[in-house]
Design a protein around this nucleic acid. Structure first.
Lengths: 218, 218
DNA sequence: AAGTTTGTGAGACAACTGTATCATAATGAG
DNA sequence: CTCATTATGATACAGTTGTCTCACAAACTT
């Protein structure tokens, strides 16, 4: 055999890699912040092998699968007759809220890893993925035609501030607020923002003044 | 001398502590993420001494002073005749916005440090400083008497999601939005939230229904 | 000037991270 | 089956973090 790299023993490597990620996710789900030794022991492989698949513990934790698949827009609003953007935005937040608090430890690790990209960052490390915007867009779909593009983008960006892990960090670490309180506060804020954007768009329909700033590149 | 603890050599200890924090801030301002050795060398003290004042690198970086003092409520609203909570909240956000983007590197390091080893949380060590709540409270002071305590606390918590470093992380890393855009979006959202809370409170004054959830412990 | 208290420096130490090397065992091709 | 390929295990290693102990020197008290 001369073709190396791709066609060595793909199945074995895939299985090992999957086992390592599963072990990491299992430990993260226990609330621990595992080190390489822990992951290796849990996966039943040696520490050196884990390092052969992931260059650092951060890179490993970032790729560890989340508990419970993050539902896409189709799963959330698929067979949904509701057309009220306020309710839909609120419900989308509730779903992401549950996912975030169920995977708190892992998401914190992922956020921390993405923040250290300040100085010297490796090449292959995956950046941050954006799970929230598709959900937000889908939630606001019924109101999309009633708003200007700028108003829609601004609202999307503002909602993105409340939908992700970062809001949980603020609630927990800065404000010392628990999950239930956080959910109630975000629910109120999300509804207020969507309502405000729609009211401004309606007002804009009769006058020519645009209250909302532009927000492109989303 | 038998009374130890308080009256030992307070001045010396204060000076050492200040030097260590200043050294850490100096290194952070260079964009580095210093370790204990670096801080000790920069401060001109031994590594053991640094550990005598701060139990970990995280605790040290969290307390490191920022470039340009964060103005307190007095400096911002001291000789200020404005009483519109919407404008005041917007202006407070603008001030914190400038501070955040001026200290982006250090604040990212501080945020990462606070997330890093979330497992072993020390007892007396503050996880995060809370610079934003005093400003938010001062901004909303003119409206404080016109709202219920629950409505006020909920609004404060919702605003706290937009005032700090975390919103910058969302804008930059998740949405890819620059500073000016971020400021405009936050300005709109802040104004919309304050306005919504005040309108609901006015409506509440005539009816008995309370739309806003409770948020205590701020 | 004692003598005592107390902050500091120096170094040893275990634990963990990330890298490198070598030997072994599993795998697939002939 | 036989043999070369290759993933893996077992180490050893340097670097860092955080703890600890001991000795020294600066301060305060009398």
């Amino acid at each position: 055999m001369e073709s190396q790299g791709e066609a060595g023993r793909i199945n074995q490597r895939r299985r090992t890699r999957k086992d390592i990620l599963a072990a990491a996710a299992r430990l993260l789900r226990m609330g621990r912040s595992p080190g390489m030794d822990d992951v290796a022991a849990e996966a039943g492989v040696s520490r050196a092998t884990v390092y052969r698949y992931f260059p650092s513990v951060e890179a490993l934790l970032v790729e560890a699968p989340l508990d419970g698949a993050v539902p896409g827009p189709a799963e959330v609003f698929g067979g949904d007759p509701s057309t009220d953007p306020v309710d839909r935005a609120d419900r989308a937040e509730a779903i992401l809220h549950d996912m975030v608090y169920r995977n708190e430890g892992q998401l914190r690790a992922m956020l921390a890893a993405s923040l250290q990209r300040g100085e010297a960052r490796a090449e292959g490390v995956p950046v941050r993925q954006n799970r929230r915007m598709p959900l937000i867009r889908a939630a606001l779909a019924p109101a999309r035609s009633r708003m200007s593009g700028e108003a829609h983008d601004t609202l999307c960006a503002a909602l993105a501030l409340m939908y992700g892990v970062e809001s949980m960090v603020v609630f927990s670490d800065v404000l010392g607020i628990g999950e239930a309180q956080a959910r109630r506060i975000k629910s109120w804020a999300v509804r207020a923002l969507v309502r405000a954007a729609m009211e401004e768009s309606e007002a804009h329909a009769s006058s020519t003044r645009n209250v909302m700033p532009r927000a492109s590149g989303l």
